[in-house]
Computed example of a mutant assay.
Amino acid sequence: MTWTAENGCPREVCDRLTNHVAGGGVDSIYNAATHNKAAGEWWQRWGDYLESLAAE
């Protein structure tokens, strides 16, 4: 999660990547956003980063 935060990943997407539920209470009732598309993009960025390390 440090890498995603250092590379500008929004907090709500970081929470999605780790399957964390932010806040609870009213947030969990009214905010049903899953951020799946953004999470997929960040998983791809992470994979690309790991490939670049392996190539070095």
Rank of each mutant, 00 (worst) to 15 (best):
1 M>I: 03
1 M>G: 06
2 T>S: 14
2 T>L: 13
2 T>Q: 15
3 W>D: 05
4 T>E: 12
5 A>F: 12
5 A>N: 10
6 E>P: 00
7 N>A: 04
7 N>Q: 05
8 G>P: 00
8 G>A: 06
8 G>I: 02
8 G>L: 02
9 C>V: 00
9 C>G: 02
10 P>F: 04
10 P>Y: 06
10 P>W: 04
11 R>L: 11
11 R>E: 13
13 V>G: 01
15 D>E: 14
15 D>P: 00
15 D>M: 09
15 D>G: 10
15 D>W: 05
16 R>A: 10
16 R>V: 00
16 R>L: 01
17 L>T: 01
17 L>R: 03
18 T>M: 06
18 T>K: 08
18 T>S: 10
19 N>L: 07
19 N>E: 13
19 N>Q: 12
20 H>Y: 08
20 H>T: 08
21 V>C: 11
21 V>M: 10
22 A>R: 15
22 A>P: 13
22 A>S: 15
22 A>Y: 14
23 G>Y: 15
24 G>V: 12
24 G>Y: 12
25 G>I: 05
26 V>P: 06
26 V>K: 15
27 D>R: 15
27 D>H: 15
27 D>F: 15
28 S>C: 15
28 S>D: 15
28 S>G: 15
29 I>G: 03
29 I>R: 07
29 I>P: 03
29 I>L: 11
29 I>M: 06
31 N>K: 08
31 N>D: 14
32 A>V: 10
32 A>F: 09
32 A>I: 09
32 A>S: 14
33 A>L: 06
33 A>T: 08
33 A>W: 08
34 T>L: 12
35 H>P: 00
35 H>G: 00
37 K>P: 01
37 K>S: 09
38 A>N: 06
39 A>G: 08
39 A>H: 01
39 A>E: 06
40 G>Q: 09
40 G>M: 05
40 G>T: 03
41 E>S: 07
41 E>D: 13
42 W>E: 01
42 W>R: 00
43 W>A: 11
43 W>M: 13
43 W>C: 12
43 W>K: 15
44 Q>P: 00
44 Q>T: 10
45 R>H: 06
45 R>G: 03
47 G>A: 08
47 G>H: 05
47 G>F: 00
47 G>R: 09
48 D>T: 06
49 Y>N: 12
50 L>H: 07
50 L>G: 03
51 E>V: 04
51 E>M: 11
52 S>M: 04
53 L>C: 11
53 L>K: 13
53 L>E: 12
53 L>I: 14
53 L>T: 09
54 A>V: 06
55 A>C: 05
55 A>T: 05
55 A>W: 02
55 A>R: 10
55 A>F: 02
56 E>N: 10
56 E>C: 05
56 E>K: 13
56 E>D: 11
56 E>Y: 08
